[in-house]
Each structure stands twice: as C-alpha cells, then as structure tokens.
C-alpha cells in the first residue's frame, strides 16, 4: 500500500498570482493540493496550508495588511494555533507577518527596485518541518520576485530570534536590504514559516533550478507524517 497523500490547501486571495504554481508544484511532489477560497470561513480537512505569492487585495495600504483580515485567514490562524503547518511564500510571508503569526515586517526594497532573479540562499536550520530535506549550510538557488522583501525587526527582537534559532534561510549576498540578509523565518513553535523566495518556481531543472522542491517536499513529507499520525 502506498502512503496516503497529505492534503495541502492553497489559499487564493484576489490578486494572488502564484497560487496555480504552488498547487502544481505540491501536486507534482505527491501531495493532494486543493484551493481554499479567501471568503471561506472554515478550512476543509487539511494537513498543511500554503499562502501563495502575489499581490493580495492589490497590496493596498501595506502588503498583506488587508489579506490578514480575510475570512479564510481567521481559519488559518485557528489552524496554526492548533499546531497546523503553514507556509507563506512572498506575499504569503507578508500576510503572516501582518497577522502576527511571524515576527517582523517586509518593507520596500532598499533599492526601491523590484528584484526578480535567482538568488543563493543558505539553509540555517534543517530541523524545521519545512527544511528536513536540506542540510544546514547548504546553498539553495531559488528565485525571488518582489518589491517589498526588506525584512525588519528591532535589535532586541532580532537577538531573541537568533537565540531561539528562528532564522531559517538567509540570502548569501544582500538582495533587498533585509536585516542580516534574512530570507525566511519560522515561528517559535516551529509550525509556521515564511520566506520571500519562491520554491514553487524552482521544482524542475527545466525551470533553472529544482532546489525549491527541497523546501516543498520537506513540507509534503512533514504533512504526510502528520496525516499518518492522525489516522
């Protein structure tokens, strides 16, 4: 008997643009991926949730500021507080920060320019549910495409995050002005992660890199373990 496919929901906000890629990539990595509409007040039975990239609600006011109040986000907050796995990619990361599920804020890039290219990332932790397939210190090549990826927290909070090892990914070189070149962080409990780079755009060598599959297949595998544990 083959192990069951974990069910992973991809929340579609108006203005999302990477939702289909996320769904496709998760399906290709052997998950049963399904869309969740932003007005849904309840989530279906899921083993993980992905908040995809894009420009939810036109990025009005601040990126992610409006999306965090979407009905589906209430359900995602509940899911996360029950320990459910949540991965936010790019705009999804911005939404998780605005919602207070992850520390910090994503500001306008230091250069004021939109940045769109493959970047090298250093994996700082391999013991999160999102990085089990990576070794610490490994360099992943994954594309970024954002105008607001300049992550910031104050010094005091940064020291706490360092002490708790909540920084999961760093750019190997400056990309957007992000504090300490942070590209991805995890919450204290370890079940919610956000990152600016787009793993869903790097799951096949044909796309330039398959390194993103290491992140997404870590998530699929962790979700599968949870699905099995729940049976």
């Amino acid at each position: 008997m083959t192990s069951p496919q974990p069910r992973i929901g991809v929340v579609r906000f108006p203005g999302a643009c990477d939702d289909r890629d996320a769904l496709w990539a998760l399906s290709a990595l052997d998950a049963e991926a399904l869309f969740v509409w932003h007005t849904d007040t309840e989530l279906p039975d899921l083993d993980a949730v992905v908040l995809p990239g894009g420009f939810s609600y036109g990025d009005y006011l601040r990126c992610g500021a409006i999306a965090r109040f979407a009905p589906a986000m209430e359900a995602v907050l509940e899911f996360a507080s029950a320990g459910g796995l949540v991965l936010g990619i790019c705009n999804g990361f911005q939404i998780l920060c605005e919602a207070g599920l992850l520390p910090g804020v994503l500001r306008r890039n230091e250069s004021l320019s939109f940045v769109c290219r493959d970047v090298p990332l250093v994996v700082e932790r391999s013991d999160t549910p999102f990085t089990t397939r990576c070794e610490e210190g490994r360099v992943l090549t994954i594309p970024v495409k954002h105008g607001e990826g300049n992550w910031y927290v104050d010094d005091e909070l940064y020291a706490e995050l360092e002490a708790r090892r909540q920084i999961v990914l760093r750019y190997r070189e400056p990309v957007n002005g992000s504090l300490a070149d942070v590209a991805g962080v995890v919450n204290e409990r370890g079940n919610v992660m956000g990152l600016m780079p787009h793993p869903e755009h790097a799951v096949d060598p044909l796309l330039g890199s398959a390194d993103g599959a290491l992140i997404l297949s870590s998530l699929v595998e962790s979700a599968r373990e949870r699905a099995l544990a729940a049976v």
């Binding site: 006011l61 804020v105 927290v153 104050d154």
Partner: peptide
C-alpha cells in the same frame, strides 16, 4: 488594527 504597522 489596520492603518499603521507599529513595528515601523
């Protein structure tokens, strides 16, 4: 709640 982000 919405109009300002107190972090920045």
């Amino acid at each position: 709640q919405l109009l300002a982000n107190p972090l920045i």
